[in-house]
Write a protein that binds this DNA or RNA. Sequence first.
DNA 1: CGAGTCCTGTGT
DNA 2: ACACAGGACTCG
Length: 268
Amino acid sequence: MPELPEVETIIRGLARRVINRRIAGVEFHEPRTVVGDPAQAVERLLGQTIRGIRRHGKYIVFDLQKGRKESCLVVHLRMSGNFVLDGEPGPHTRAIVELEGGPTMVFHDIRKFGRWQVSDDLPARLLQLGPEPLEISESEFVKQLRGRRAMAKALLLNQEFLRGLGNIYADESLFRARIHPRAITSRIGVKRAARLHRAIQEVLTDAIAQGGSTINNYVNSEGGQGYFQLSTAVYGKTGEECTVCAAPILRIIVASRSTHYCGRCQRP
DNA sequence: CGAGTCCTGTGT
DNA sequence: ACACAGGACTCG
């Protein structure tokens, strides 16, 4: 479900209420949710104080401290994971973290794809990811993009190229930059590449700004709607009129993912 | 590169 | 019954 803007909104919502709280209780209801042995993870989490929450691409990193020792809890929400503070446990609850003098973090995940990992250091996987889309400079982005030979959509989804974009924002960014999803990146001109850089940053910034006010509820209570109020230009708009030229929005498969674009605005 | 896999729910 | 879902890994 969540891409960079949603994860960003979620960590902001969490940060306000869980920073400097100590973990007083941990339950895992679904062993798959945990990388490694759940009982061991519980052991390692108990008594830890949450000193910070960061987003790394689509990963959520909880910085933990107990005495002099630091460690971290890394959570990836994948398709359907979400946090609800003081939420009601239900059939889809996979983990619960009780904080001393603070809220209880209830983790729901219908599809069970979400993963929690407790680790001394940031797992290697995270360090292999590409730069943050909102931090990379235009010149660096242009250089990297043109230095690779891949379909534009596939490259945007590749977390080792950029971390945090997913299917929605990849489509939306390409539409805004008027680049065909199957365009070969090594052949994209400097000007178009720069346009894509700008498009990505605008799309993400807008989404964070929009999501911010509404997804907070998402974190604080059941049934938040921020995510569903998200307005898209092409994603999920197959057959509807393009907002720019009124041509129908098309749907194709690229990188094994459903891909939406305007056949007139985004020429091959 | 694409295809299959992990899961469950929803919509047609 | 079937297609599809906002992710990412493994395989050929």
